[in-house]
């Protein structure tokens, strides 16, 4: 038995990728859950909002690169993020003004808002295509690795290598900072508390003199920032392709529902739960079994599901939660 190599392999192929992916999902799910908590509908345009924000960030990155500005070992995209966030915030505020506000005033059924968000999804999808096209874009620059396989082997003398990409490390660090900032805002500032109050009890918030339109605007701006950051980190880590951002909608919804729609802590837990399940279920465990049980010769790759079915994992998690605990693990809004 070779526990050390097995642990390194698990870290390398499961824990690190899943942690980075989980952080991206968590940021996405936070946006979905905040919008749900305040505006009370599932925003189908969230994936395309992420794509739009990332597209603007990429354009700004290219602009900075053309000017010769860089962040050294860190990706230039970090410098471009504020531009992406500002553009996305302007975009979602414009859609709120022109689309959602009308239905809010009418007190329309939530499903009508969901449908309107599908229309907005079309629009954002089109704008993203206009901006950057449908092709895959790579925009990561700076140092590729915090730790690469060769240096790790030389450092430790182990057979199994460990790679820790800059983008993965960055994703985790930024996610921690963003989540801390968000919770500080929600729990410590008057505006943040007003948002939570509005989410808790809309009528009482009105009686207390909280301005609903201001709360809604704040929510959209925060959601836009979260979406742009999540999208950019996802794009840096993998690659940017607009259609992937539509597909990531399902794991994001799964994460938000698992955690309990409207509950920010739940969204984060849900993001990591979905990511770890997805990676663990689609990873071929043969290599690790080889370290742990050298005498065992299994017939297959010990892969539960092909990577093509990774969405099925989010779906199954979603179904299980809907069956057993529709309000989510952390008790979100009512069924």
């Amino acid at each position: 038995m070779d526990i050390l190599n097995a642990v390194v392999a698990i870290l390398n192929f499961v824990v690190i990728p899943a942690a980075a992916y989980g952080a991206q999902l968590a940021l996405g799910a936070l946006g979905v859950t905040l919008i749900y908590g305040i505006l009370r509908f599932s925003n189908f345009a969230h994936g395309d909002t992420m794509a739009f924000g990332t597209a603007v960030t990429i354009l700004a990155t290219w602009g900075l690169q053309a000017l010769g500005i860089s962040l050294g070992p860190l990706p230039t995209a970090l410098l471009a993020l504020p531009v992406g966030i500002a553009a996305t915030a302007a975009m979602v505020l414009a859609t709120d003004r022109t689309v959602y506000r009308f239905y809010r005033a009418q007190k329309a059924k939530p499903i009508i808002l969901v449908m309107a968000s599908v229309g907005v999804m079309f629009l954002m999808n089109g704008f993203t295509r206009l901006l950057i096209g449908v092709d895959e874009q790579r925009f990561a620059d700076g140092a590729r690795f915090i730790m690469d396989v060769r240096s790790f082997r030389e450092l430790t003398g182990l057979k199994e290598g460990l790679a820790f990409k800059t983008t993965q490390g960055l994703t985790i660090v930024i996610a921690v900072i963003v989540v801390w900032a968000l919770f500080w805002f929600l729990n410590r500032t008057k505006s943040g508390k007003a948002m939570r109050a509005y989410s808790d009890n809309e009528d009482l918030a009105l009686l207390s003199g909280i301005d609903p339109e201001k709360v809604v605007r704040m929510t959209w701006i925060i959601a836009a920032a979260l979406a742009t950051i999540a999208g950019t980190l996802y794009g840096l880590d993998k690659a940017f392709k607009p259609f992937n951002y539509f597909q990531i909608l399902l794991p994001i919804f799964a994460a938000a529902i698992v955690g309990g729609l409207g509950n920010p802590v739940g969204a984060i837990a849900g993001g990591f739960l979905v990511a770890f399940s997805e990676v663990a279920v689609t990873y071929p465990w043969l290599k690790i079994a080889g370290y742990l049980f050298p005498d065992w010769q299994p017939g297959g790759l010990l892969q539960l599901l092909g990577t093509e079915y990774k969405f099925a994992v989010s779906f199954v998690i979603l179904i299980v939660v809907l069956l057993f605990r529709p309000t989510g693990l952390f008790r979100g809004k009512s069924v």
Partner: peptide
């Protein structure tokens, strides 16, 4: 009341 908020926060919101 605001059920998920603490007693103190409920009072703060009253004074919004």
């Amino acid at each position: 009341v605001f059920p998920s908020m603490s007693v103190e926060e409920n009072l703060e919101m009253g004074a919004f």
